[in-house]
């Protein structure tokens, strides 16, 4: 696929359809891949990669890139296309300045996920069928791809591209996903268990803002948490309350707009399962106001921008079982 992508990118640069390409650039190891803009065929040859570690979602970069001169070529994986649609709908990107090539994805992993599985000292990675063969400083290790994938890929919601100008390879289908399993499990817990669970997770937050800065739905010109008068601008959480507040407000602000791309959890240096907050909102919206997938198209209005006179009352929260 990498070869096909480079070839196609070169053609599009050559025939003037686009003047630059945003893609993944190889690093020092097999897994440390950086998003980069390529301006020429030479640059593409020198560094463009597409492999199992190209997890970064480029949609958000397009907010700035699409405002620059000329058209940019972007390669989008299926889940990235949902964010892309959402941004198009919100007029945050200029669609006409972007040429989208959809590329297939079988799930993307990253160095940190491998390390959590106990594979350290990684010097090289090869893909052999359904497994990764990892060269390490301490010998060769093999791990099944299915075991090496992060949660967001194990519960992939769709392999179908919802926005593209052309496709490379076959398009997939919307998947039967089990992505709400963990949310349900939490809902079934007692209030105190949930509290302890979240305290355990959120107390690790260091307020690095990576989740916010990477999030394709967080595109405010000026974030409320960058407002000095909020008292908590961009800074460390000085109290457990502030850890909670930051994540509640952030999740709330993207509710109905979050496409569940999972970037927040991918980038969190403390491995906080932030997607569980977003998925709770998605699940609630589905249950209360009907099935809704943000980014599925560019027309449907977001659930928090509309209402129905027959909507459930907030008391629905007490009426459901458990405590």
């Amino acid at each position: 696929m990498q070869g096909k992508m480079i070839a196609r990118a070169k053609e599009l640069l050559q025939n003037g359809t686009v003047n630059r390409v945003i893609g993944w650039k190889a690093g020092d190891f097999a897994y440390d891949i950086t998003p980069a803009v390529f301006n020429s065929a030479e640059e593409l040859d020198a560094g463009f990669v597409y492999n199992d570690f190209c997890g970064a979602n480029f949609s958000k970069y397009l907010v700035k890139e699409s405002r620059k001169e000329g058209k940019i070529l972007v390669f989008l994986k299926p889940c990235d296309t949902y964010s892309f649609n959402q941004l198009t709908k919100e007029h945050r990107i200029i669609r006409d300045n972007i040429y989208v090539v959809g590329v297939p994805c079988d799930g993307k992993t990253d160095g940190e996920t491998l390390k959590l599985k106990g594979i350290t000292g990684i010097t090289g990675i090869k893909t052999e069928g359904d497994s990764f063969v990892v060269d390490t400083l301490y010998g060769e290790k093999t791990i099944a791809k299915a075991d090496a994938l992060p949660e967001r890929c194990l519960s992939c919601k769709s392999k179908k591209h919802v926005a593209y100008d052309e496709l490379l390879g076959e398009d997939g289908e919307v998947c039967e996903s089990n992505r709400f399993d963990m949310v349900e499990k939490l809902e079934a817990m007692s209030s105190e268990e949930r509290f302890n669970f979240w305290r355990g997770e959120l107390s690790r937050c260091i307020r690095c803002n990576a989740c916010r800065n990477v999030c394709p739905a967080c595109t405010c010109e000026r974030c409320v948490f960058d407002n000095d008068n909020s008292g908590i601008a961009q800074k460390a959480a000085a109290d457990s309350f502030e850890e909670n507040m930051f994540h509640i407000i952030r999740a709330f602000h993207v509710a109905g707009r979050c496409t569940d791309c999972g970037e927040c959890s991918r980038v969190c240096p403390q491995n906080i399962p932030l997607h569980l907050l977003n998925r709770k909102f998605i699940k609630d919206i589905n249950e209360f106001y009907g099935e809704f997938q943000a980014g599925e198209d560019t027309e449907t209005r977001a659930p928090l921008n509309i209402f129905d006179t027959e909507d459930v009352e907030p008391s629905v929260v007490y009426e459901k079982g458990g405590n």
């Binding site: 803009v37 260091i206 690095c208 800065n213 980038v267 240096p269």
Partner: peptide, 16 residues
């Protein structure tokens, strides 16, 4: 310019 182009402006590097 090219090194900083894709920087998200988060504080992860600083805080770890």
């Amino acid at each position: 310019a090219e090194l900083s182009a894709s920087c998200l402006g988060c504080g992860t590097c600083t805080f770890v």
